[in-house]
Amino acid sequence: MKITSARFVFLLFIFAFTGLNAQQTSVMVRAKAKDAKFIGSSIGGAKIYIKNAETGEILAEGLTTGSTGNTEKIMNNPWKRNEDLSEEGTAGFLANMDLEEPVFVTVEAHAPINKKQATVVSSTQLWLIPGKDITGDGIVLEVPGFVVDILSPQTHERIPETNEVQITANIVLMCGCPVTEGGIWDASQYEVKALISSDGEQVKELNMKVGEKPSTFSVSTNLEAGLYGITVYAFDPVTGNTGVDKTNIIIN
């Protein structure tokens, strides 16, 4: 199709006008563990996506980086309206977008991104307005749960029937905050159990006790020869936080 000089000038004007109208808009997004602190570099961060809610187009993405924040301020001090919980250096992801018009977005946090058995998605939706920055605490997405890692026995480990099976797990909040006896995140508040199954049926349910090393829970048991699945779960009856990890072993 032939484009006349007048039409070309008109199209050029429209393109230039649209470009001039795009305004850089900064949006801070943070992920905060339920009943704990911000999710940052120490546990690998949260993966953040800002998407056009209508089309699914990703407008910005990145990892939250920085510290978990000020423990005293977040966990102990009374909170006042409009007061930021974050400080300089507190973990977050600052998205800088060129917006031409208001856009309705979905903001997602996949966290903690490096712990796949524990990663959950927290999301919200809102309008972003060109040139209207959202800073300070910004958009804070709460991430519930525990990160549970079975340390022993190892996956597919072969254990003699005559040996005790030592089940040990590491349990932290989603920010990596430690669980200790009498600590801010009190181990005595949590229910931690090992469920042992064989051929699809549960054969044992064992209470796990906190050890001297922070965040470590363990229990020992004996098993007959066979194939077993081990599930370790943590549950906080106060906050509803939960977490699970699984492994399989062979007793011969």
Rank of each mutant, 00 (worst) to 15 (best):
I3W: 08
I251D: 04
K116L: 13
V103W: 06
E224G: 04
V179K: 06
Y190L: 13
M208C: 04
I167S: 12
G66L: 10
T90W: 06
T221H: 10
D245N: 15
T65A: 13
C175N: 09
A53C: 02
P237T: 11
I230G: 10
I230H: 05
W79R: 13
I39Y: 07
E88Y: 04
I171M: 04
I196W: 02
S67G: 11
G40Y: 06
D245R: 15
H110C: 07
G92I: 00
F235Y: 07
V165C: 10
L63G: 00
K193H: 09
G62R: 12
T119N: 12
D199L: 04
E101P: 00
M75G: 02
P160F: 13
I14R: 08
F146P: 00
E161Y: 05
K32L: 02
D84I: 01
F235W: 03
I50Y: 08
F10N: 07
T64A: 03
D186R: 08
S218L: 09
G176I: 05
K116R: 15
D236E: 04
E212Q: 10
S220E: 13
M97Q: 08
G56T: 02
I43A: 12
F104A: 01
N241W: 07
E142L: 06
L11Y: 07
T124K: 05
G176N: 07
L227D: 09
A22S: 09
I139K: 06
K51Y: 05
N21T: 09
N248H: 02
N96E: 14
Q154A: 14
F235S: 07
A194I: 06
G182I: 13
V103P: 00
A60Y: 06
T64P: 00
E87Q: 10
N76S: 02
D245P: 14
V29T: 01
G44H: 13
L11H: 04
K73Q: 08
I196D: 03
N21E: 03
T71R: 13
V192Y: 07
E101N: 04
P178Q: 13
T162N: 06
T65S: 14
N252P: 09
K34D: 03
S41A: 04
E205W: 00
G138F: 03
I48W: 06
I58Q: 10
M97P: 15
V27W: 08
T25Y: 11
D199F: 12
F8C: 12
S123Q: 15
P214K: 04
G66K: 12
S152M: 14
G229Y: 03
D35Q: 11
A95Q: 11
K209L: 04
G176Y: 10
V210E: 08
I251C: 06
N163F: 08
F146Y: 14
G200W: 05
N114F: 01
M75T: 03
T221M: 09
T216Y: 04
S123M: 11
N76T: 04
H110Y: 10
S198E: 13
I129E: 12
V103E: 01
G56M: 03
P78A: 11
H110V: 04
G44W: 13
K116M: 14
A111H: 05
T71P: 00
A109G: 10
M28L: 05
M28G: 02
M174I: 02
L99N: 01
